Amino acid sequence: MQDFFRTAGADFTDTFKGAWIFPLLILCIIWILWQEKDRMKRLLTGILPLVFLFLYWCPLTGKLFMKILGENVYWRILWLILPAVTIPYAGCLLLGKVKGILRYGVFLAGLAVLALCGKKVLSEEWFAPSTNVYKLPQNVVAVCDLLPENIHALVSNRLMPYIRQYDPSITLEFGRNAMIYNGMEEPKDDSQILYLEAQKQEIDLEILAPLAKQRGCTFLIFSANRTYIGDWEAYGYKKYADTDEFCIFVDEDYQTGEDTRKWED
């Protein structure tokens, strides 16, 4: 129970932090329930958001959704609340209560409230100036420039969304869909075991390296702060190259120019 509320609370805070949209949303819901006379409109814009909030915080439904969706995407339940519908609709109800020049004043005040309660879309938290023509993180470009073409690789989750944008000749052992394995306590197959081991701060090469070999991962790329139990060369891999943020390892049997891709584009 505590784990559920810890996860739900962290996701809720991360979704609404840095803004006052949620308090504004609650005020708008109250206003709609008070002023809207049409039952269907009141249901859709006032009651339904409260229902989704209840489903989000209720441990019974919350654990069910976490099991179905995965803990990493549970926060998307909050998208169903639709503040972009509820808040403007409440504003329209308010505008309908005033007339003449006062309506323009209320409209401008509403815009000001939205601006002050929200946060910048193009904030430094999510956006950064482009440093290359590909508009990809520079650490991705630094890694890709060291890799040969036509290889199969197991890469850090930090690189996963970008590698094939830079070089589509590289195939990846895991895509973003593999993130559903995060938090899995009892992996059921070798693929899940390999993924979960690769996420650890201290990676046991006795577990990871044979599975990576078995699945044809020619190159392995991990964050530079990872530590390892065992010797890479004892399991058929060796250091290939480094960047400021990542370490690259290669299968000792790999021949320069060899095509090790699992599929062709």
Rank of each mutant, 00 (worst) to 15 (best):
F5H: 15
A10Q: 10
D11M: 10
T13M: 14
F16S: 10
K17G: 10
K17F: 13
K17A: 13
G18S: 13
I21M: 14
F22H: 02
F22P: 00
L25V: 09
L25G: 03
C28Q: 04
W31R: 05
L33T: 02
Q35F: 08
E36C: 11
M40I: 11
L44V: 12
T45A: 11
L50H: 11
V51S: 11
F54P: 05
W57E: 06
C58I: 05
C58Y: 15
P59R: 13
G62S: 07
K63W: 02
F65P: 01
M66Q: 14
I68N: 02
G70M: 03
G70H: 01
V73K: 03
Y74A: 02
I77W: 13
I77R: 07
L80Q: 08
P83Q: 07
P83S: 09
V85I: 15
T86D: 10
P88E: 04
A90W: 01
C92Q: 12
L93S: 08
L93M: 12
K99H: 15
K99D: 10
G100Y: 12
L102K: 14
L102D: 05
L102H: 11
V106Q: 08
V106T: 06
G110L: 11
A115W: 14
C117V: 07
E124C: 05
A128I: 11
N132S: 08
L136Q: 06
P137Y: 06
N139C: 04
V140T: 15
C144V: 15
P148M: 07
I151A: 02
I151F: 04
H152A: 05
L154H: 01
S156K: 02
N157H: 03
Y162H: 13
I163R: 03
R164V: 03
D167C: 06
D167G: 05
S169C: 03
S169K: 09
I170Q: 03
T171V: 09
L172Y: 00
F174P: 00
N177P: 09
A178I: 02
P187F: 11
K188Q: 14
D190E: 14
L194S: 02
Y195D: 01
K200M: 12
E202G: 08
D204Y: 10
I207R: 01
L208Y: 11
A209F: 00
K213D: 03
T218V: 09
L220C: 13
N225Y: 14
T227S: 15
T227A: 15
G230C: 07
D231G: 02
D231W: 05
W232P: 00
W232Q: 00
W232V: 00
W232H: 09
E233Y: 04
Y237M: 01
Y237I: 00
K238A: 14
F246L: 01
C247W: 05
C247R: 13
I248C: 05
V250L: 12
D251P: 01
D251E: 05
E252N: 12
Y254G: 02
Y254P: 00
G257V: 12
E258K: 14
D259W: 07
D259S: 05
W263G: 13
D265P: 15
